[in-house]
């Protein structure tokens, strides 16, 4: 087994991304989807850090990229949870399957 290198980190990020993706498309509850999306965001951060550590990218870029990504993710989760709360208050459910009035 070689030293932990770029390939390993990128594969880890890809695996995490896939896990998050699977969770996002298979979850019934909106909160579960949010969690899976969060996992996907984390995987991107891992990806970036892998590149920062093991490859010759501009380090500052990678750090700022991931910080901004965290900012974006935080904002999105805030909005997402607010939406889920609003939906729950109105419809008493947070299962996305129950919200299918709009179609066509």
């Amino acid at each position: 087994m070689p030293t932990v290198g770029l390939t390993a980190v990128v594969l880890l990020a890809a695996a995490l991304f896939a896990i998050g993706l699977y969770g996002a498309i298979s979850n019934d509850s909106a909160i579960g989807i949010l969690i899976s999306l969060e996992i996907m965001a984390i995987s991107i951060t891992v990806n970036l850090m892998g590149f920062a550590r093991f490859s010759s990218v501009a380090q500052a870029n990678a750090w700022f990229f991931s910080v901004f990504l965290m900012v974006i993710t935080a904002a999105e989760i805030g909005i997402g949870l607010a939406l889920v709360v609003a939906v729950y208050r109105r419809a008493r459910t947070s299962e996305v399957d129950d919200l299918s009035e709009l179609k066509g």
Binding site: L21, I25, D97, L99, S100, K103
Partner: peptide, 17 residues
Amino acid sequence: LRRVQTGHLQRYQRLIV
């Protein structure tokens, strides 16, 4: 085509993927 738009979120997500 309209029938594809079922209204179920997970259907849309799976369609995207």
